[in-house]
Amino acid sequence: MTGEREVQTERDGKVGVITLDRPDKLNAYTPDMGDELVDAFRTFSADPEIGAILLTGNGRAFCAGADRAFLKGERGRNGLQIGEEHFIDGFVSELFAIETPIIAAVNGPAVGIGATMLLALDMRIASESASFGFPFAKLGLMPGMGSTVLLPAIVGLSRAKDILLSGAMLTSVEALEAGLVSRMCGDDELPETARELAHRVAGNDGSAMAASKRALAGQLGTALTNAIKDEQREAQNLAHRRVARLYSLTNDG
């Protein structure tokens, strides 16, 4: 998988496969990757021939978080800085509402946005070498993508607080025990295991699965919308405090 695109897609029968494809950068997230993810999810979810979507990473990482160059203000080919693209700015509600089942095959470290992007998906499988990092408290950042409501819904409120406030890095075993992932397998087994599961899911009745997803989501959709607004407000507050501290330090010097 080479080329300028940072997300590759393929059709494997009734399964749409989405692969993060910056292996030399551990699939670090950029605004261009975000735009391509939005396009890929929309394309597959609108295709009546696709019964399941599989998301994974190319190489030894799933997604090692946001690319540092872009955190420092670099703009993507789309002209956007991180946070201005729709994937971060509001796509999670649409992603959560997609009726086609979405499975994540986490093949290595999933850190920061690499971890939070997984929370809106339906099923998460981890390889033995996978890990899940939530370093936001250590970095002075606000976790986004609805994670403040999705993570508690997945692992429970007490465990979610432990993870977010401690800035935890979970091993695949710890993620399995917490319920963050539902299955774990050997590194070499992950691609085949994930595709077998995706094909099995894709063979089910699409209308029945969509109905189940809607019923399971329940009122969480409204809570998710509110959480996104709260996260964005708190992220702006944190950013303003960082600027104020920097200004104060500069003047004191």
Score class of each variant (00 low, 15 high):
G3Y: 01
G3I: 12
E6Q: 09
E6M: 07
Q8V: 13
T9E: 10
T9S: 03
E10R: 15
I18P: 00
P23Y: 12
D24P: 05
K25W: 12
G34Q: 02
D35F: 01
D35L: 11
D35S: 07
L37W: 13
D39I: 10
D39A: 13
T43D: 10
D47Q: 04
P48N: 05
G51D: 05
G51K: 04
A52R: 04
I53Q: 01
I53F: 04
G57L: 06
G57S: 04
G59N: 05
G59D: 09
R60G: 09
C63R: 02
C63L: 08
A64D: 15
D67K: 03
R68C: 06
R68H: 01
K72Q: 11
G76D: 00
N78G: 01
I82Y: 11
E85Y: 00
I88W: 15
D89Y: 11
V92M: 06
L95M: 14
I98Q: 08
I98H: 07
T100Q: 04
T100P: 01
P101A: 01
P109F: 14
P109K: 14
G112V: 07
G112C: 15
G114A: 09
A115T: 12
T116R: 04
M117I: 15
S127M: 12
S131G: 05
S131I: 03
F132S: 02
G133V: 11
P135Y: 09
P135L: 13
P135H: 07
A137C: 12
L141P: 01
L141K: 09
M145D: 06
M145T: 11
M145A: 10
S147M: 13
V149Y: 01
V149E: 15
V149G: 01
L150N: 03
L151S: 01
G156E: 05
G156T: 07
S158Q: 14
A160V: 11
K161W: 10
D162H: 07
I163D: 05
L164H: 07
L165T: 07
L170H: 05
L170Y: 05
E174D: 10
A175R: 00
A175Q: 04
A178F: 09
V181A: 02
M184D: 04
C185T: 15
G186P: 03
G186F: 14
D188T: 13
E189T: 13
P191C: 08
R195G: 08
E196P: 00
E196C: 07
N204F: 13
D205H: 03
A208K: 10
S212C: 08
A215Q: 08
L216N: 10
Q219P: 09
Q219C: 08
L220D: 07
T222V: 13
T222W: 06
T225R: 15
I228G: 06
K229W: 03
E231I: 11
R233I: 11
N237I: 14
L238K: 15
H240G: 06
R242Y: 02
R245M: 12
R245Y: 09
Y247H: 11
D252I: 14
G253K: 13
G253L: 15
